[in-house]
Amino acid sequence: GGEQQMLAMARAVMLNPEVILLDEPSMGLAPILVEEVFRIISRLKEQGVTMLLVEQFAAAALNVADYGYVLENGRISVHGPAEKLKNDPAVKAAYLGGGQH
């Protein structure tokens, strides 16, 4: 699974697209491979590659994102800069494993 994900990402980048859509790149991967996939995403970001990332692993996604959208029942419930979402108590409680204090 992880090798297929990395190969798919490499093939996409080789085409020099304007935008890359990554749909659940961590799905079904072992934790060590998830870390590697997000390291690759971070490197692509540093190189100026524009990406649209759809990911249920919210903490990892927000760590590499500039901006985020939280979908609930098919609707955008919250959106904003990733850093703001990471620190939002409601987002933390619902999606990042942190309780409200």
Rank of each mutant, 00 (worst) to 15 (best):
V78E: 10
L33A: 14
I20R: 00
M6E: 11
D88P: 13
M9P: 05
Q47F: 06
E18T: 14
Y69T: 09
D66L: 01
A93S: 14
V34D: 05
G99S: 14
V91Y: 09
A8N: 14
L21M: 13
Y67G: 03
S26E: 11
A10E: 12
E46Q: 15
V54W: 07
Q5I: 08
I40C: 08
R39I: 07
G48Q: 10
K45I: 11
L29R: 04
A65R: 05
R11H: 07
A30C: 10
R39S: 14
G68L: 03
E18M: 05
E55S: 03
G80Y: 10
L96F: 08
L7W: 08
I32R: 13
P31K: 07
E18A: 12
M14C: 13
D66W: 12
Q47L: 12
K86Y: 04
A8I: 11
Y95P: 02
E24F: 07
V78K: 15
R11L: 12
I41F: 05
L44S: 02
L44D: 04
I76Q: 06
N63M: 04
V19G: 02
E46W: 00
D23W: 00
A90L: 14
G48C: 09
E46L: 11
M6S: 05
L7S: 13
M6A: 01
G98T: 11
L96M: 01
E55F: 04
K45F: 08
Q47H: 10
V78D: 05
N16V: 07
L62R: 03
A90H: 11
A8M: 09
I76N: 07
P81E: 12
Q5G: 01
H79L: 08
A8W: 10
E35K: 15
D66G: 07
H79K: 15
Y67V: 04
Y69I: 06
E46Y: 05
L62E: 02
Q5N: 07
N73A: 12
E35S: 15
P25W: 00
K45V: 08
E3P: 06
R75Q: 14
V78L: 11
A94Y: 10
G1Q: 11
D23R: 01
A93K: 13
N16I: 01
E55P: 10
V19H: 06
G97E: 06
H79I: 05
Y95Q: 01
A30H: 15
Q4E: 13
I40L: 13
N73W: 06
A30K: 05
A82H: 03
E24M: 06
K84F: 09
S26Y: 13
Q47M: 12
P31V: 08
Q47D: 13
M9K: 04
G28V: 13
P17F: 01
Y67N: 02
S77H: 10
H101T: 09
V78N: 00
E83T: 13
H101Q: 10
N87Q: 15
G80T: 11
G97P: 12
V70G: 04
R75D: 09
L44K: 01
P81M: 09
L21Y: 12
